[in-house]
Design a protein around this nucleic acid. Sequence first.
DNA 1: CTGTTAGCGCCTTCAG
DNA 2: CTGAAGGCGCTAACAG
Lengths: 362, 362
Amino acid sequence: MSTISDVARAAGVSVATVSRALRGVSTVNPATRERVLRAATELDYVASPTAASLASGRTRVIGIVTPFLTRWFFATAISAIEKTLREYGFHALLVDLEADSALRRRELTNQMLSKRADGFITINVPLREDELALLDKLGLPVVAIGNPVAGYPLIHIDDQATVRTAVDHLVDLGHSHIGYVGAVPAEAEHRLVPWSRLTGFRAVMADHGLRVHEEWVIPCDWSAQDAARQAAALFLHDPAPTAVVAGSDEMAIGVMAAATESGHRVPEDLSVIGIDDFVLADVLRLTTVRQDVVAQGRAAATTLLHQLLSGSAEPSPALPAGMTSDGRLTLDTTLVKRRTTSRLRGTVSSHPPLLGTPADRP
Amino acid sequence: MSTISDVARAAGVSVATVSRALRGVSTVNPATRERVLRAATELDYVASPTAASLASGRTRVIGIVTPFLTRWFFATAISAIEKTLREYGFHALLVDLEADSALRRRELTNQMLSKRADGFITINVPLREDELALLDKLGLPVVAIGNPVAGYPLIHIDDQATVRTAVDHLVDLGHSHIGYVGAVPAEAEHRLVPWSRLTGFRAVMADHGLRVHEEWVIPCDWSAQDAARQAAALFLHDPAPTAVVAGSDEMAIGVMAAATESGHRVPEDLSVIGIDDFVLADVLRLTTVRQDVVAQGRAAATTLLHQLLSGSAEPSPALPAGMTSDGRLTLDTTLVKRRTTSRLRGTVSSHPPLLGTPADRP
DNA sequence: CTGTTAGCGCCTTCAG
DNA sequence: CTGAAGGCGCTAACAG
């Protein structure tokens, strides 16, 4: 592994010049720059990031703080962030909070954040007071996705409007007995996304003059499995809902499973609509309200990079279009009609439903 | 941000002693160690990883080389690796190869690997000669998951045996017209996992004295969407298969979608079995051959850490149980019977099939 | 435009 | 068991 002085010697210049030439900062004579570049490639030289960091005080690393690594929303956002960061020569450091189904998670510590990154992106993580204080004390730029972090830019969708789109669609189809899966307890109010989808559901139902049957509001940890388990309760009541909004596509799949399990057809007996348009929604023919998670990840990364790089010699990305002056970017969501919703008591559709066959009863 | 000398001053010792006390290496007087620890916590001191790396030559970072960040297998493995690394105070650096559906990917460069990590874990990535040479030149430990990397330890499942389990199950149910989804072209032989599942399928069929209809062997980029698209061809032939093995659960879902789309019921008209037991398999009632990806990720991480830490003062993990002396660990896979497979021409099952309702035809 | 020279904060011999 | 001191490889003034 060659060092900067090897290159300097080979090119017949000083290490400072090598450093400047390789980073493209300040002005270096084109001829000498050329010589340096040639020497560097010949020696297969790569500057030590660790030494560069120590000397410059910048790591070119961004910490991604996330409760989950595998769930669709989080994995998709992380992937988009990582790709964007790399376009600017930055790297992603995973700070995995290891949440177990959104109830408990590891806490943010000075240990895990200190001196490791130039900034942080949080993905849907509500911070406690002391964690927020820690972040503030670090004095580094932060951008939040989904759940807001007080005092920092936020990239998100309008959860209430998203739920409204879902409910409106069901109402348009003639439904009035509408359930909701993905409820969280009142003390989880700090988990803003689940909370505002739930309260949004209630508000929209009220706007339509529709009654919310509390037995149709189903708590769930937001996994498909738990949704399948919990949604079974939906069919124990009389009247049962004719349609349900799920807080996420994964839960919507769980609801479809529960419906089938208890002998109900989707959408003939029960319309189901999700939120996300996750990777399998198309194949599973799930009607959903689409959000663009890749755009959210990209916007978060460019926002952070803008703060970090603007004013420096390097090219810095522009702030994402549509961001307000106080650093808020709310992305639109759109209804995607597929086959899990249908007109109330509608005739059997000409398309076969993908999920949900009634139990064969004697 | 306090430095090591702040702590040294506060504790009334030298920086060397602070360094030793905090890392727990060599012998430090319990009393002075106590004083150092106290001073460190009071000052909220965290050693600069970048300075420590520069001085020690070790980064405590492991690069995870992966073609995908969001697909189930990869995300699950990454999550498991990351958790294991952190138990030993190591961090994960994502090296995303950004494959576009397994056809093309970014190449490994000296730039992205050099001086950034103490070792690498590759997840299902076949290396070209020059990339392998680069890795060798780096002289760092490497562990491969899935696709082997010549000369390094390998954690994997027996793909041929796994496919055999799937085919055996279908044969047990009376099927002989069996298709396969997930074929790759002969020139993709280096992509060992898809390739050996495909050749395994052929071999096992031959063992059963069963003919493989080439029209039932469906190529696919291993995404659910493409599987749905390609598998439609399955139903254009006469005879059509009565059962199909999919190379992964995601593709199995695609096959189910295609079946439904063309008016076939699963499992009444077509049995479908996948490989993986991915997160939604249970809820979707998919019969599959399960592999434990978390165990694979964990095994890869402990293998690497063992190499890195054994011989040092730090505690090092044992090599995973079952690893051969030449560094090969083959994990078992198991059949998980659910509802997408059934006896050929069997009576309608008492359980409702979850996916797959026949087209309502006039 | 280029070279010289301090550090960046820590680890690691080497003495004591 | 502890302290002193020399780097690790690079960046960033500061001269020239």
